[in-house]
């Protein structure tokens, strides 16, 4: 394969890629057109697999030589054996599944680690939008109308951290991105991250 310059990844995808060690087994759940997976295979030499719900996405991936299956995260994760992967990636999808808790547990059953990215519903702009306009917030990251959004389980960074604690999941790393794509570590000052982070990426283990 010849590629002069590594193509620029979307901010949150680059964050995810940075959390993944080279030469590992990676499953990208909801891999879309395979942008992240192709990046990981090419630049981190991972043994990469993907699941994607859209036929167009799957066919693009397989045509590009990626090992991707057409499937649904909500039903197909159960097929995989325990600890089949070093990392299972779930990017901007947890808020759109019916059972986020079950899916999260599945990620950490089939993967030794999980990398999860999600939009933060407690971002100040969303709070402001709701407070001032009195309508369901819409932003660049969350750009659907309330009646046709696939995002049925939105949460805040703080909500997600609490869920992990309740499930006994260890958060090894957590980073949030503000509107300009600047990274912030989510440390003790959860309140600040929860206010300023537009999206967050977590590296999790059991």
């Amino acid at each position: 394969m010849t590629s002069a310059l590594p193509p620029a990844l979307r901010g949150d995808l680059q964050l995810i890629a940075d959390m993944i060690q080279p030469n590992t087994r990676v499953l990208d759940v909801g891999c879309g057109d395979g942008t992240l997976l192709a990046h990981l295979v090419r630049h981190k030499q991972v043994n990469g697999r993907g699941i994607e719900i859209s036929t167009a996405g799957v066919n693009a991936c397989v045509s590009a030589g990626l090992s991707v299956i057409q499937g649904n995260a909500e039903t197909d994760l159960f097929d995989y054996p325990d600890a089949a992967f070093d990392y299972v990636v779930l990017s901007q999808t947890l808020q759109a599944v019916h059972q986020p808790k079950v899916i999260l547990q599945q990620l950490l059953r089939i993967g030794r680690r999980a990398v999860v990215s999600l939009p933060n519903f407690a971002h100040w702009r969303l709070r402001w939008y709701l407070l001032v306009r009195g309508r369901m917030p819409k932003t660049k990251v969350l750009d659907h109308e309330w009646y046709d959004t696939p995002n049925i389980h939105l949460c805040s960074i703080q909500d997600f951290v609490i869920l992990c604690r309740d499930l006994g999941i260890v958060i090894e790393r957590s980073v949030c991105l503000d509107r300009k794509g600047t990274r912030y570590r989510i440390g003790r000052s959860m309140t600040v991250a929860n206010l300023l982070g537009e999206q967050a990426v977590f590296l999790l283990r059991r």
Partner: peptide
């Protein structure tokens, strides 16, 4: 998948 095989699947 149950044996973690390297599999692609396209319909």
């Amino acid at each position: 998948n149950a044996v973690a095989a390297d599999v692609s699947f396209a319909e």
